[in-house]
Design a protein around this nucleic acid. Sequence first.
RNA 1: GCCCUCAUCGUCUAACGGUUAGGACAGUAGAUUCUCAUUCUAUAAAUCGGGGUUCGAUUCCCCGUGAGGGCACCA
Length: 518
Amino acid sequence: MCSVCSVGNPAESQGFWLVEDSLTGCGELTRSQLLCSTPSGRAFCLTSTFMSKVRVRFAPSPTGFFHIGSARTALFNWLYARHTGGTFILRIEDTDQARNSEEFLRLIYNSLTWLGMDWDEGPNPDGVGERGSFGPYRQSQRADIYKQYLQKLLDAGRAYEKDGAIWFKLLGERFKTYDEHRKKEVEKVKAAPVVIEDLIRGRVERAEDEDFVIFRSDGNPVFHFVNVVDDITMQVTHIIRGEDHLSNTSKHVRLYEGFGVTPPVFAHIPLILKSPEMGQGKMSKRDKGALIEEYQQRRFLPEALVNYLSLLGWNAGDDREKMPIAEIIKLFDLPGVNQSNARFDGKKLGHMNMLYLLELPAGRFLTLAREYFETLPDRVVAAAALSSPADYFAAVMALAQPKIKSIDELAAYTVYFFTDGFPCDAKVKEKVLAKGDPKARLAELMAALPAMDFSSDAAIEEGIKALAVKHGLGFGDYQAVARLAVTGTNVGPSITGIFRLLGLARIQARLQSFLSTV
RNA sequence: GCCCUCAUCGUCUAACGGUUAGGACAGUAGAUUCUCAUUCUAUAAAUCGGGGUUCGAUUCCCCGUGAGGGCACCA
């Protein structure tokens, strides 16, 4: 029996079954596809899994900020669509009129676009009109379709009205029992459990033993109903969603049966949990680092975020972690997705971001840096940076790019290039002044400065080294105190680069004014 | 309370039933460059517990325990 489409058996196969003996010849199949067929004893029918076109959907509801878990679910759907050459659908689940907002809707389009997840069907990214021939793609515009499908259930005797709402009717013997959780008596139905063949979890059985509401008394359909109707009418082949929906799936399967439709393939992906410092449970919108918007504002590189997200619950099968998106698409597959939940690790994400930052073309870094300063809350620093000559700004950024871990460090890291009003770190000052004879070093440096060649980093280095040799000291003896005087800190790019960009006059002025404070 | 899922270093994860249990992030200690960051080297760190099956179990089975999710006229 095919684990996916539940049809036929390998003995009757026409050569379209993925079974152990026939693997060697299947060069087209990925490693994880091969593996999934054997350890768990599952078999897949190629006709259903690979030969019909994959259609997957991401179906967010615009009731809150777009967060990391949603992005990962979207990503896995998108990756699977791109991996299989299938279709990625964006559907807006906006049936909860009280909590929907246009602002959140725009945020969904914006975030997906920023992350590079383009959709083949759904509303257009600008919110005007839509694409695809299975629309409308906003549930708020699909009322007629829901009415029509409700009628099918009514006609089949599988739905009934009670207390003004419409309920889905389960088949089987009925009995009453007391529900501890809800503290009331409920009517249950005796029936064989629902069997879910999940691509990631394997076979899951769950009893579905209570009628449930499909249309509220206000006339609006509920999630379970619209979700299933939409997936049927949009011809969705694979439902990739968070494991938190696994318990809902039995309801959905019963609805598919009620409509006389074979359910799609389910793949319930693990959840993203809070990092240990953040506490227990799944990542929530209130957790630090949970919102995609935050990374966008901090100018994280979307490709780094996507790469990091792809590694939460999935891996390439070897030791590689940083990979171009094309490689991830090539290697990604559903049976290779882990079953256990993953904790979010902002530090590792930061590391990934740095890796991408290091190899970012200077031109793009410059664009991002400019955008960053344009939206920087500190308008004084921003104005100073943005009003500097373009080539000077570019030179400063070139100095900073290989040294910072994320773009939002840029203001603090480069402030002294753009203004004389930079802060001086008191602790660093104390430390540096305590070592050797810094005042003497500064005096020597100032004396040597006018004769120094400022044309290149190498020339500057040579000048300072010559000075050091002359006094029987090391480069570091001048570097540390000069850096403190000129930048107010002990971290930053090479001192030679700082000297070269700032130029003789400003170096002299800063050394002078620093000397007056010690 | 009931139902479902999961379980390898602190974290993300590798390991046809046979490995000195590997890599990455974070940590620690060094090296290097003018600081910092990078880089390099070294180091510490894991198979939840108990039973089976097996010549042999991280891997298969059962029971505990722990973690997560669900149990709405929310999605």
